[in-house]
Amino acid sequence: MIPSNFEYFAPKSVPEALSLLNKYQEDVKVLAGGHSLLPQMKLRLAAPKYVVDIGRIPGLAYIKEADGKISIGALTTHYALESSALLKQKCPLLSETAAAIGDVQVRNRGTIGGSLVHADPAADWPAAVLALNAELKVIGKSGERTIKAEDFFVEMMTTAIQPTELLTEIRIPQLPARTGSTYLKMHQKASGFAIVGVAARVTLDANQVCQEVSIGITGVTSKAYRAKSVEAELRGKKLDSAAIKQAAQKATDGIEALADLHASSEYRSHLSRVYTRRALEAALSRVK
């Protein structure tokens, strides 16, 4: 497995990287951790003429908190996210999602930004950023813009980011008090990818009534999505097992579940409902 030949650049700054992206447009691919891009190139699913390695740009790997918001640099590895004490305390959904990815070798090298931009329909991060209402900061030559997670995933392997833009940061809004969350996944045994992955977070008021709920589902269709029918059914309701069970039936409303050799469409839909119910119950049990 040998990729087709390419010219390699290792810019030292974001502006330098952007000018390369601008120069080579559709012929260029950005290399972060390389754990999505290099397999694609080896399988010849991608054959960029130019590769821009952003791994030499300082200051793109960090996890920090300011004014309640958590900011994560795009080059932060899954391992760094998995082992971050800040996230375990402030946003355990992210540490849990990171720990569910691939294996040690993959987590040590793969990055959150790379995974998001790659937008594999069975990747874990898309579900988590959807459930957390994350904002993705991208920089292009004409400046910076912010894309909501919900608007980021366009189609299979396609995001709202332009070839001339770079994802630099993932921002997680502050989670209110009395919030619980989890990421649950049925993984494909060999690859670790999600057959179904559900990220759920619920926020209750003092009377156990659901103030806010968001559910991101990955692995089921061509892109990760928000289970809006489930959310709508639960918002404003007192959350208990019966309510959750009923609402989870809508996990694939309006969605055409994919079929492949690992799971039929019916099985995927069924798993989506089961994992949505389990994820919501786990999230509920974690509300403090």
């Binding site: 390389g34 290099l38 390695d53 391992y79 040590n108 090298r109």
Partner: peptide, 15 residues
């Protein structure tokens, strides 16, 4: 210090 798959790292990346 971190375990990696050397098949998914480019030689140029270890500079």
């Amino acid at each position: 210090g971190l375990l990696v798959d050397s098949c998914l790292v480019l030689g140029v990346e270890v500079e």
